[in-house]
């Protein structure tokens, strides 16, 4: 076992929540004198069917735990199902990278992987599992999945079979809630931005009342003046929203960099898709036209001399 920096000693004492199957195991480093030398390279204790388990079993450690605790392949640790007990020595056979899972993003848990029989023995859960994953022959088609589920559930007692798609729907409930929340907040922000934009554009156009009066006095028709006012508002809106989209894109980079660092995940947190950018520009354009029309309507209805303050 390698010696660890003192600052990491506390982390080493943490218990490890093991979610792969049942139970929680606690682990601690084995005293240095009893540890075998570290092995760098190929994982020890590969999964070979029918092979007799070695005396010191191998485990896989997720890279986050390995990084925080300074664990390397070949290190020997003690692993127990209950904190405070001595536990059994295990050797770190592999470091694994967990798939980026949004449902775990805020949970700073560590994980280790054990062979099923090893965990069953360690937790006293002989011959017990949480779930089976069953693959149906690909050529059998989706109907075969339903048929299989119906068959299993007809005879099942104490357990139930679910299609992966149903499990996915159920486990994505959190994200459905977050999605609904985002949509709601997005709605509020859009209304706020719309009012803001409408207000600014209206003010901007009204600021040009004297120029409008001059155009009218010069003989330009109401229609021409109104169209020019609307066109100006539309251009300002489009340019503003394009600039906003650019700022938004930079913001997504910052947001992603920040949260990926905080949560130590490659997940993308903010995404500016062409569709969203297009929506922003289109909404701005619409609001620009509405604001321009409102202002134009007010301006062309007012006599030019009144606009000039006479």
């Amino acid at each position: 076992m390698t010696r660890l920096p003192k600052t990491r000693e506390a982390i080493r004492r943490l218990a490890v929540a093991l979610c792969a199957t049942v139970g929680v195991v606690a682990w601690q480093p084995l005293p240095a004198q009893s540890a075998p030398g570290p092995v760098i390279g190929a994982p020890r204790d590969p999964l070979v069917p029918g092979r007799r388990p070695p005396l010191v079993r191998g485990i896989a450690v997720d890279e986050r735990l390995a990084s925080d605790a300074g664990v390397q392949v070949g290190d020997t640790l003690r692993l127990s199902a209950e904190a405070g007990t001595v536990g059994e020595p295990v050797v770190v056979s592999a470091l694994v990278r967990r798939a980026a899972d949004p449902s775990e993003v805020a949970r700073s848990e560590y994980r280790v992987r054990l062979h099923l029989d090893h965990l069953q023995r360690l937790t006293g859960s002989a011959d017990r599992v949480d779930r089976f994953a069953v693959a149906i022959n690909a050529e059998a088609g989706p109907a075969a999945v339903d048929s299989f589920l119906a068959g299993v559930n007809h005879v099942a007692f104490g357990f139930r079979a679910h299609a992966s798609r149903d499990v996915a729907v159920q486990s994505s409930r959190t994200f459905q809630v977050v999605d609904r929340f985002h949509r709601a907040i997005g709605g509020i922000t859009i209304v706020a931005s719309a009012v803001f934009l409408l207000c600014i554009l209206l003010l901007k156009v009204e600021e040009r009342r004297r120029a409008v009066a001059a155009l009218r006095l010069a003989g330009l028709s109401r229609r021409t003046v109104a169209l020019s006012v609307i066109a100006e508002a539309a251009v300002v809106a489009v340019l503003g929203s394009a600039a906003g989209a650019a700022i938004g894109w930079v913001a997504t980079l910052l947001v992603n960099a920040h949260y990926q660092r905080v949560f130590r995940t490659p997940l993308t947190f903010a995404l500016l898709t062409p569709r969203i950018a297009l929506f922003a520009v289109a909404l701005s354009l619409l609001l620009g036209i509405v604001a321009g029309s409102l202002a134009a309507w007010r301006l062309v209805r007012t006599p030019p001399l009144t606009l000039l303050g006479r």
């Binding site: 943490l14 218990a15 490890v16 929540a17 049942v22 139970g23 929680v24 209950e82 904190a83």
Partner: peptide, 15 residues
């Protein structure tokens, strides 16, 4: 709670 866990966050128990 059992070492390293939050209340009822896992099925861990302590003897």
């Amino acid at each position: 709670t059992p070492k390293g866990t939050l209340p009822f966050d896992t099925e861990a128990s302590v003897g």
